[in-house]
């Protein structure tokens, strides 16, 4: 059974078919690329997978169960976490608290314990702080834990977003243009990070990216979208030589 499978997925916005007939299949621990020209509908795919939009047709099965109609927070709790194209951090919160927000679905205590600081509060908060710091350590961000998220440099903000998504302990991680705005060295580092994440956390990763060196370098398989439909899928080598893909990118 695949980790995630979509069949005949489509959505219509105001009579316009934004996506049509999208078939995706992702196995556990795979790293998959989703590419295509601007406006091809890549982010829309993410929004469908995470419950931001409800598809007008088709099926999405995650670990064998349909997730259509579930709210975004429910889908996150089932095991799909994402980042955003335009970074969406909790700006006025500290780096540590940003991570904790995603983590706290696993570390529960009731509101009475919270208000009167009863033992469950201390126990769970302590564990959460430890876990969050460990996670930050893995990404070399331990020293900025107490800083306000909006004060981080751009690259670290991107990193924090990935980290925050991981804090939810997902089985599938969706990265929306993680290399946007990065220079070649940073992109290269990111490639390493993505591989490392897969090994350490055992997650499958679906990433949208424009940087071809990154996509070709790190992905095992690639899906190509154009005008809302899939035009190709295969290994990086196959995609590189695919006529339709070349045509779509050259605008022929």
């Amino acid at each position: 059974m695949a980790l995630l499978e979509t069949k005949d997925l489509g959505i219509v916005f105001g009579g316009l078919k934004a996506l049509d007939d999208v078939y995706l299949k992702i196995e556990e621990k795979e790293i998959i690329g989703l590419i295509g020209p601007n406006g091809a509908g890549k982010t829309t795919v993410f929004n469908l997978l995470t419950g931001v939009y409800t598809p007008t047709k088709g099926a999405i099965r995650f670990m064998g169960k349909s997730i259509i109609g579930k709210k975004p927070y429910q889908i996150n709790r089932i095991g799909i976490a994402r980042t955003f194209q335009n970074i969406r951090l909790f700006k006025a919160m500290t780096v540590l608290d940003n991570v904790k927000v995603a983590m706290q679905q696993h570390r529960r205590y009731n509101v009475v314990s919270a208000m009167f600081r009863l033992p469950p509060y201390w126990k769970e908060e302590r564990k959460m702080t430890e876990e969050a710091r460990e996670l930050l350590k893995i990404f070399d961000m331990e020293d900025v834990a107490e800083q306000q998220a909006s004060n981080l440099p751009y690259g670290q903000q991107r990193k924090l977003e990935i980290l925050r998504a991981l804090a939810a302990r997902p089985k599938l991680l969706l990265l929306d243009e993680p290399a946007a705005g990065m220079n070649p060295t940073e992109t290269h580092e990111l490639m390493e990070t993505i591989r490392r994440i897969r090994e350490m956390f055992g997650v499958a990763i679906l990433l949208i990216e424009h940087d071809m060196s990154l996509v070709m370098g790190v992905c095992e398989r690639i899906y190509v979208l154009d005008y809302g439909t899939l035009i190709a899928d295969g290994t990086p080598e196959e995609i590189r030589s695919n006529e339709k893909v070349i045509k779509a990118y050259l605008g022929g």
Binding site: R77, L89, K91, A92, M93, V101, Q105
Partner: peptide, 29 residues
């Protein structure tokens, strides 16, 4: 005060900061 510094308060603040991101991180907004 204690509410604001608990997981509950943190969720509420996260909603203030970015509702869409909060929901995507598992917060029942």
């Amino acid at each position: 005060y204690t509410f604001g510094r608990s997981r509950h308060g943190r969720s509420v603040i996260a909603i203030r900061e970015d509702e869409i991101a909060a929901e995507a991180m598992g917060v029942n907004t």
